[in-house]
Simulated scan of single mutants.
Amino acid sequence: MTPLDDIDRKLVMALARDARQPASILGKRLGLSQPATWRRIRRLEEAGVLSGRRLRLDAAKLGFGVTVFLGIKLATKGRVSLEDFERAVSGIPEVQTVEHVLGLYDYRLRVVARDLPDFERVLRRRIMTLPGAGEVEANVLLSEERLAGPL
């Protein structure tokens, strides 16, 4: 674990809110010069604390009106490798996240679709045909009250 001081924590939180902020603005807020701010950002990137900058897209405005969380149990553990399943499911563009979890299901997926018939097509033609896919439970997202933020 990389030791972080209070300024590092404030910098990480500020970047988590908006990674587009210029180092000069961040530095002013934190009481640092622009070069000192850049050095801290670079050090946090090299330590792996910061990894990339993401753009948050509005799925509904892009035509994806349905989000579904799927719990998937592998039907044939041992006969199909986890890597084969993960590689295959990662190739489906509608699948936004793939999480290997401990519990009732082996995997949790976040899937977007244009509407429910489109989701049914993705489920039947792509997800249910994955190597080792067994039992599936779907939960349709009704609303998202809080977006992911800093830890």
Rank of each mutant, 00 (worst) to 15 (best):
P22D: 11
V89M: 05
A60N: 08
G134L: 01
M1N: 09
R42V: 14
V111M: 00
P22M: 02
L44M: 08
D58N: 15
G27D: 05
S81Q: 07
L15Y: 05
R40T: 05
I41M: 05
R53G: 09
L130E: 00
E46H: 06
E99V: 13
S143Q: 10
I41W: 01
R39D: 12
Y105G: 04
G31C: 03
Q34V: 12
A23Y: 06
R146P: 06
G48D: 01
V66G: 02
R121I: 11
D106H: 06
T2H: 14
L44E: 05
A148Q: 10
V80P: 09
R126N: 07
R126T: 02
V111N: 00
I7R: 10
E46G: 03
V80N: 05
R124P: 00
E144A: 11
E46D: 12
K73C: 12
K73I: 08
P3W: 09
A14P: 04
L50P: 03
V122A: 05
D18E: 08
V68S: 03
T37F: 04
V140D: 07
L55D: 04
V66F: 03
P3D: 11
E83R: 08
L62N: 06
S143I: 12
R121K: 14
T97D: 06
R54E: 13
V101A: 09
R56V: 15
R125V: 00
A14K: 07
R42N: 15
L57G: 09
K73Q: 09
R53H: 09
R79D: 13
E94A: 10
Y105M: 10
K77W: 13
L130N: 00
A36D: 12
D58L: 08
P93H: 03
R121L: 12
R29T: 13
G71N: 05
R53T: 11
H100F: 14
G78M: 08
R9V: 15
S143P: 03
A148K: 13
E86H: 03
L151E: 13
P22H: 11
Y107V: 01
R114M: 06
E83D: 11
P150V: 08
G91Q: 04
L70A: 07
L102K: 07
A36H: 12
T37A: 04
E145N: 14
R40E: 02
L74T: 07
R39H: 13
I41D: 01
R124A: 11
V111G: 00
L116G: 09
E45Q: 07
A14N: 07
A16V: 15
G91Y: 01
L130I: 00
